[in-house]
Computed example of a mutant assay.
Amino acid sequence: MVSGEMRLAENRSLRDSVIVVTGASSGIGLATTRQLVSMGSKVVAAARRADRLESLVSELGEDRVAAYPYDVNAQEQAQGLIDRAIAVFGRCDSLVACAGFGAYGGILDHTDEFLESMILTNIGGTVWPVRAAVRHFLEEGGGDIVIVASVAGLRGGGNEAVYASTKFAQVGLAGALDRELRTKGIRVSAICPAGVKTEFAIGYGRSAGDPGLDDLLQPEDVADAIVTVLEQPRRMRTTLWTMWSMAEQS
């Protein structure tokens, strides 16, 4: 190597790659969709709020984004994610599971109904689309699954026990899937950010005017990590990526 020459690992191009993103109408899912499209990917954007999905298609173009109104708790709708990708774009290469919600609060805070919805959404709402994607990727000889979890799934804080339990489940799912599917060409990554300035952070425990929100990670920061994982050459995989803002103590 010539002195001073830099050796750079290659990245996979995501141009024309077909990627399903759940939770695509806001926060990390929305930022991820926008970034993928900017790189030339084609995205099936899935979320409950059909009006937001329609606006996203108008913004980014129907040649690049296909909307899929989707309730992650509805098991029977999960296969439709893959079917939509194949029908519109001809294939499906990756799944990014961003859908979820939570709340700060002790074990006795919030109603039983709220906690049940959070548990079903964060755990079942990850398992069902992953199962649909795995069936397809096994037929195609490989693919990528990225699960957006949280650092709460590694060391739950003192005011988020139930939420943390759902994130522990996501991290465990990703790790077990990696060990199950690696030899079949399917890469599974868990992205675990700390606090992110999203509607979730504002809506449950903080107000929109809280100046501390600006010091948190931004949705685009997490989106960049997701894209980085997808761009990695097929010989390597990232199983777990934790992300912290400079303002937070790990």
Rank of each mutant, 00 (worst) to 15 (best):
M6T: 14
R7F: 13
N11S: 15
S13V: 05
R15A: 14
D16P: 12
D16A: 09
D16G: 03
V21Y: 03
A24I: 07
A31H: 04
T33G: 12
R34V: 10
V37F: 02
K42F: 04
R48Q: 13
R49Q: 05
D51M: 05
E54K: 13
E54P: 04
S58K: 14
S58V: 13
S58N: 13
L60A: 00
L60P: 02
D63I: 03
R64W: 08
A66M: 10
Q77M: 15
Q77C: 07
A78P: 01
Q79P: 00
G80N: 01
L81G: 05
I82K: 12
R84H: 13
A85E: 03
R91H: 11
L95W: 12
A97G: 14
Y104P: 08
Y104M: 15
G105Y: 04
H110A: 13
T111W: 06
T111H: 08
F114H: 08
I119D: 05
L120F: 10
L120E: 12
T121K: 02
G124S: 15
T126N: 00
T126S: 14
T126P: 09
P129K: 01
R131E: 11
V134P: 12
R135T: 06
H136T: 12
F137Y: 13
E139A: 14
G143S: 14
G143F: 07
R155Y: 12
G157Y: 10
A161T: 07
A161W: 02
S165A: 15
F168T: 00
G172S: 12
L173A: 02
L173Y: 06
G175L: 11
G175Q: 14
G175E: 11
R179F: 11
R179I: 03
R187S: 14
A190W: 07
I191M: 05
A194W: 04
A194T: 04
K197M: 10
T198E: 02
I202S: 00
Y204D: 06
D210A: 13
L213M: 10
D214E: 14
E220R: 11
D224R: 13
V227R: 09
T228H: 15
V229N: 07
V229H: 01
P233L: 03
P233G: 01
R235H: 15
T238D: 15
T242G: 02
S245E: 09
S245V: 02
M246L: 15
Q249Y: 14
